[in-house]
Design a binder for these strands. Structure first.
Lengths: 187, 187
DNA sequence: ACCTTTGTAGAGTGATTAGTCAATCTAGTA
DNA sequence: TACTAGATTGACTAATCACTCTACAAAGGT
């Protein structure tokens, strides 16, 4: 792992444990095994480090999610995969998931440009529009569906994260069904 | 408003806008119109201020929610009221709601004693158990229901917060129905 | 009137921090 | 070999911050 990645990895660990305030750049550099100067060679400011870490993680996540899709998958299968694999990713990358939420409810989120944030949700939004177009899911505002799906996802995650691994799968599967039932028409 | 309340109000405003790190105690004192010393007369440490602000807001919220219940309300009516009025409270107290979330995803949450946190969710948990006992809602783990309801609530809030006020009501009402359908048995 | 407690002020302090800078190292290229 | 550009170091600095301390004022009890 090169120095830049090392710095990002150390920053992630420390930010999640001690918060942005609680982690001086000097500790990040130390943990990463590099000098103070090197940190500022790669990241002009601490704020830049926070931002870049966020964007890196989000991109990794999206790449992972969409790598699970195969061409023959229908819209429903894709949505289900995105849902399920997000939770497995979050369980395997708890710090990263926590960090994303941490940034989301901090003033740092406003430092990240609107266009970057949009870019990351674009594919998910597209999926929803597609599902709406093919009449699979209800005619609700796309943003509402997106928000509800996200919230539900986090709800399931928050519950299963405290469960022993062998009990997680049925809850996750059932969790998706609950969301799906909510979003599809019921007679 | 006495000085202590003034300090809490100023802290809320500044913490939400600039984060915990971004707001020095000196700025809080200035904004509140008191001296540095006065702030530390009421709150031994900055951390104490952060904690007490959290607990105060949570208690206010709970008091508000349960003040809306009348004795003749059944379990379903109570749950609906708690749901609906939470959203209205959050819309009327955006900073307070944002602050709660901010603390939740920060290391400061670990500084708040387990018993205080439990006490605040106790009534909500009781409500769910009651609803389960009377067979109104599905037989799922109480914690799971609690988490899902919370998530759904925040999802609806996140959507309506960007809507003009006259369009909020139908979404909120419908939002509750979606959750209720999800938690009650479907044939 | 006297004393005690509590509230308030604001200058002061020691520690910490983000970011700088000049110097050295490394690797690629000609 | 000589040159260059980027990488790396770590001591240094200017600023900031949480918190202290001393002094004084207000309130209230006896």
């Amino acid at each position: 792992m090169d120095k830049k990645e090392q710095i990002l990895a150390s920053a992630l660990k420390l930010f999640v444990e001690f918060g942005f305030h609680g982690t001086p750049t000097s500790k990040i550099a130390k943990e990463a095994g590099v000098s103070n100067g090197t940190l500022f060679h790669y990241f002009a400011t601490k704020e830049d480090l926070i931002k870049e870490l966020y964007i890196t993680i989000k991109n990794d996540l999206n790449q992972f999610l969409f790598s699970k899709i195969t061409p023959e998958d229908g819209v429903e299968a894709i949505i289900k995969k995105v849902f399920i694999y997000f939770i497995y990713w979050a369980l395997d990358n708890r710090e990263k998931n926590h960090y994303i939420q941490q940034v989301l409810f901090s003033p740092h989120i406003f430092q990240i440009s609107e266009s970057v944030l949009m870019e990351q949700s674009q594919k998910h939004i597209q999926l929803i529009e597609e599902a709406k177009a093919t009449k699979i899911i209800k005619e609700l505002p796309t943003d509402l569906i997106y928000t509800l799906a996200n919230s539900h996802l986090m709800g399931i995650y928050n519950y299963v994260v405290n469960l022993p691994p062998d009990q997680q799968k049925p809850i996750i599967e059932n969790g998706f069904e609950m969301l799906w039932d909510m979003l599809t028409e019921q007679k």
